[in-house]
Design a protein around this nucleic acid. Structure first.
Length: 492
RNA sequence: CGGGAUGUAGCGUAGCCCGGUUAUCGCGCCUCGUUUGGGACGAGGAGGUCGCAAGUUCGAAUCUUGCCAUCCCGACCA
């Protein structure tokens, strides 16, 4: 076991924090609830971002940027949205500081510099964007508008956790405007599918696609679609949301367009987002007591090469081989690091890169040179194998693929074992307190019942899965008639 | 925001209850040498606003008050 990391079994929270901090993804900062994303963590985010960005652009979206600050009058225009976020908004009230006459060397807010209208720091950008779209849309010919922005937002959270819930975080938010309801719903579902594909293919993290109940719906949305993932402690994590906003924002911001028959109508809207929370999800989905386990498709460093040598002569011989290998790997688009730093010995490096979740390690020593082999180690299983240097680049690339597949399969079977049906209240409670995970159970469809279940057990309905099987049953709590099972879980 | 815990060098810590020499130890860091197939060894060295600010006192890491930050548990939450 690692010397540096708390055991997942004994202290899951501490284990998670240790992975983030010791794995070099992020640091605490001087600002309450805010973290510093370190270069290694940011590189991971960049890889996620670049891939998502490509997927957004392939489906016709363009990036733009809207202001951080939203005038309060705009923010409050869509009532439900405003109310939903009101409690966690940071607000700018002044635009100037001045030296404090009573406190030498200190600054104070200049009371003369009070803003006439307060500015809300965006917790999300619907308001400022729909205010802008109003000016862009007159005719059906102006539609659809398919815009995404990569931005930071601030939500003043009571309790924060690295990556999972911080006061400021990075995300992308897509905001689209459409001429028809069907088109907007299709867009909502399309983006949900993109999120699911990204999570499963790149993050190697299986997700369940579903619809939120009214209780869990985004403030201001008609429908909230989501992808839900399962963490290793059996708790669910919402990893992405896609909202069908109906005409709510169009009405609030008076955004109308003329259709082909010259009839005026409000436009239909969607918004969708994923955030740096995905990094938290990724960490908890795969990692173990030795450190992070990153999927090859997103790992900032896919392959690390560690030389093992005595003396300069051996080092030079190794360097030569490594140089050739690195050229081949780089040509194939593999991100590779050669750690020939003499300060640390090989054993130290092995542990270090395991902590950082580098998928494949290559160790090359003098003995290997003689036999024309290297030692390959894969992070996910910690298996070591001796392989020929001939065609090594191909071997490594194949291994990266195999690891990607293997960690998905592992996460998938973990989850499969933890989707359990409960048919009465006793079973339901026992499952929640026991193995956790998703519990598939009947619900009478009322918010009141959902609230009651949450109050009693802290479990919420994570989603109603898409294409859910319809079957008659009785609500787990009330015994009232139900037409389908929904997925409950305790969640982050 | 409520309850609990913590804060001493980059990290982990002793000292605090019961105020009083030069603030303890390990890791890490720097220099030199030996090393290098799973977290090396020796010798020498550097590094401290004891979280911050007030207060009590002849004297505060130690006592008091306030504040800040982190963690855990609640409440809250995309």
């Amino acid at each position: 076991m690692s010397k540096e990391i708390a055991s997942r079994e004994q202290d899951y929270s501490q284990w998670y924090n240790d992975l983030i901090i010791k794995g070099g993804l992020a640091d605490y900062s001087a600002v309450r609830g805010c973290m510093v994303i370190k270069p290694y963590g940011y590189a991971l985010w960049e890889n996620m971002r670049d891939q998502l960005d490509r997927m957004f652009k392939e489906t016709g979206h363009q990036n733009a940027y809207f202001p951080l600050l939203v005038p309060k009058s705009l923010f409050e225009a869509e009532e439900k949205n405003a109310e939903g976020f009101a409690k966690e908004c940071a607000v700018v009230t002044h635009y100037r500081l001045k030296t404090d006459p009573d406190n030498k060397g200190k600054l104070m807010v200049d009371p003369e510099a009070k803003l006439e209208e307060e500015l809300v720091i965006r917790p999300t950008s619907e308001a400022i964007i729909w205010n802008t779209y109003k000016g862009w849309i007159q005719s059906y010919r102006d539609l659809p508008i398919l815009i995404n922005q990569w931005a930071n937002v601030v939500r003043w959270e009571m309790r924060t956790r690295l990556f999972l819930r911080t006061a400021e975080f990075l995300w992308q938010e897509g905001h689209t405007a459409h001429a028809t309801k069907t088109e907007a719903v299709d867009e909502t579902v399309q983006m949900l599918n993109i999120y699911a594909e990204f999570a499963e293919t790149y993050m190697a993290m299986p997700v369940i696609k579903g619809v939120k109940t009214a209780n869990e719906r985004f403030a201001g949305a008609e429908d909230t679609y989501c992808i839900e993932a399962l963490m290793q402690d059996g708790k669910a994590l919402q990893a992405g949301t896609s909202h069908f906003l109906g005409q709510n924002f169009a009405k609030a911001f008076d955004v109308k367009f003329s259709d082909k028959e010259n009839k005026l109508d409000y436009v239909w809207a969607t918004s969708w987002g994923v955030s740096t929370r995905l990094i938290g999800a990724l960490v908890m989905a795969h990692s173990d007591d030795e450190g992070l386990i990153l999927p090859p498709k997103l790992a900032p460093i896919q392959v690390v090469i560690v030389p093992i040598y005595k003396g300069d002569e051996q080092k030079q011989q190794i360097d030569e081989k490594v140089k050739a290998l690195m050229a081949q790997l780089k040509a194939a688009g593999v991100s590779v690091k050669y750690d020939d730093n003499d300060n640390n010995r090989p054993g130290w490096k092995f542990a270090e890169y395991e902590m950082k979740g580098v998928p494949v390690r290559v160790a090359i020593g003098a003995r290997d040179l003689e036999k024309n082999v290297v030692e390959l180690a894969r992070r996910d299983t910690r298996e070591k194998m001796t392989v020929s240097m001939d065609g090594l680049d191909k071997t490594i690339i194949a291994l990266l693929d195999e690891i990607q597949t293997a960690i998905y399969a592992k996460a998938n079977s973990f989850r499969a074992e933890r989707i359990t049906e409960a048919n009465n209240w006793e079973e339901f409670v026992k499952l929640l307190d026991g193995k956790g995970g998703f519990i598939s159970a009947h619900w009478d469809g009322t918010p009141a019942t959902e609230d009651k279940i949450k109050e009693l057990t802290k479990a919420t309905i994570r989603c109603i899965p898409l294409n859910n099987k319809q079957e008659a049953g009785k609500c787990i709590l009330t015994g009232n008639a139900s037409t389908q099972r929904v997925l409950f879980a305790r969640a982050y």
